[in-house]
Design a protein around this nucleic acid. Sequence first.
DNA 1: ACGAACTCGGAGAGCGCTTTCCGAAGTGTT
DNA 2: AACACTTCGGAAAGCGCTCTCCGAGTTCGT
Lengths: 350, 350
Amino acid sequence: MCYKSGMPSGRAPTLEDVARVAGVSRATVSRVINGIRNVDPQLHDVVWDAVGRTGYVPNRLARSLVTRRTGTVALVVSDSESHDDDPFMSRFFADPYFGRVVGGLMSVLRASGVQLALQIVGTEDGRKRLIGDLRNGQADGAVVLSLPAVDPLPRMLTDDGIPAVLIGRPAEPVPINYVDLANETGATLAAEHLLARGCRQIGMISGPAEVPASSDRISGFRRSMAKHGHAWVPTVTGNFTQESGEAAMRTLLASNPELDGLFVANDLMALGALLALRDAGRRVPQDVAMVGFDDSSAAVAARPALTTVRQPLEDMAAEAARLLLAHIDDPSGRVSSVIYEPKLVVRQSA
Amino acid sequence: MCYKSGMPSGRAPTLEDVARVAGVSRATVSRVINGIRNVDPQLHDVVWDAVGRTGYVPNRLARSLVTRRTGTVALVVSDSESHDDDPFMSRFFADPYFGRVVGGLMSVLRASGVQLALQIVGTEDGRKRLIGDLRNGQADGAVVLSLPAVDPLPRMLTDDGIPAVLIGRPAEPVPINYVDLANETGATLAAEHLLARGCRQIGMISGPAEVPASSDRISGFRRSMAKHGHAWVPTVTGNFTQESGEAAMRTLLASNPELDGLFVANDLMALGALLALRDAGRRVPQDVAMVGFDDSSAAVAARPALTTVRQPLEDMAAEAARLLLAHIDDPSGRVSSVIYEPKLVVRQSA
DNA sequence: ACGAACTCGGAGAGCGCTTTCCGAAGTGTT
DNA sequence: AACACTTCGGAAAGCGCTCTCCGAGTTCGT
């Protein structure tokens, strides 16, 4: 109970307290702390000294209330109306995708002293509340994780003039900032690699057609295959989880026993496919060559290690953070989107 | 530009606006919105109607400023003074551990309408600011992710009376809420399984000795081994990443070529060990039996699938959230800790 | 019919901070 | 020495909300 410099008991010290200790007014302390205008250097020191002695820490809430700046951005994750006991969310968070994005965002935000607040929005009502909170200055802006299917959120955000950046392009064209990967190009890379390897019977395990990233990969792959004379690509749809990949592989194998090449729309499903292939007694890459997508940690961990299309998610997320910060600083700035070029990372599976 | 019900342009509507539309005072609107005291049912409806028409959403900041409740909890991740370009954080976020915890926390917090704000704290200064922010009511409480090594943070939190829950016990005894796994028991499970399988030369790949969870696993494993006559367990230390597991395995194999059993302190390192073993031409489990720890998604994905000690992280995180919420509601409540019992999940690797 | 007891809504004082507006000094010019 | 300028600190008005008072209106007991 011996009160040290920080007088840890009782309420946190306020500007008023510091002002009293320093023998000046609240306004002056505020100026010193925010480095505004030229305050007499002598007073300046007196104030900082008082700050130190009282252990004063500015109250962000109060500050935000008047400045209308919170130093926080929201990370919006859309929970597509999952049923209550559907573990969709856990699955999503456990997916390397989420972690990589958070890591990328933080690498930039942290340097700017900006915080990240996780927001899950599912229902129509949730969206309304989110927008309301953002308009009220609950956060300065939002990073929206790639939305499944068509979602009114992007439009709502732009309509209300809320600084926002999407990771993954919106399903419908909306004038909003976003970063994305050239998914079609990525799929093309995969197709050409498989073809160059001499595969003749090539199949695909795709993601849900409603998500743009997924449909781009599908169309990109189909297009390059068609260009090389493969008008028809047997395809089974998964949902980006390992289990769905395994199941899809079985289905595909049942209808196309001759398969010798495979493009899988993400590494997690590729992992599942690998298992199904092994169970079926097919060797990878000797019997079936396989190209994944993402270059997540799973790709390196897999045996055989996955040849995969690299998506620099961390960089993309970091760029999204930068874009958002810029847009917050200058809301009138032009809407911009940056598209990353994928790269094929050749390992063992193809 | 046709202004719909929400009048999306201009500033967000305030209580004052609603009051004007409803023809009552601010106070009454506030009462209606918060359901306080009995307001005349007729007025009640009038007010809600006005709320609907104006599209009013309460300003959390302003509300928090006076109520001293934010409806937000901080998720504190300690960045042990990593060097600037050390990708430690990215690694950490990409680890399934992070995602599982976030998922578990959100499952509970979401239902209570509580938000999660990510906080990374590294330096001494960062800790001070964190505490300051918390005392100021930046968040109602904190969930602290298992800290590497001895950290003053838990003590600082309790000293300042900030509701907090640790995930993973503190390195030094501190009267603070925490949830943890009976790590020693888990290691014992692994040891006994390996022994029962008939392994004679058993080694261990451990995590960093400074983190409590890690040291508990080490001591638990050593103890049971000793009890069964194995006084000496060859051990190599890793840092919980797959790469470190692979390297550790090589080292271990070099000094103990006779090895036929192995306990690895987490699944990610086990994955790495699996690779090193394969490269060395050892079959798992025939030549070397291996038990991992965590039962993360990696365990199922591995081939052979990992026999591992299950740590119900999602449940633990959910419980942490509940504990925190309870502690926030009643700060005088007793400090409590709940320890989860691990379970051995037998798959293929042992 | 009169006061006590109760119900309900408004006025207003803050929560901790920023920021405009002013007046009091200080500086330099003619 | 009188003027215009500039510099600097304080007073005070909010930011949007909650919540304690308090007064007015209603109901009921006697």
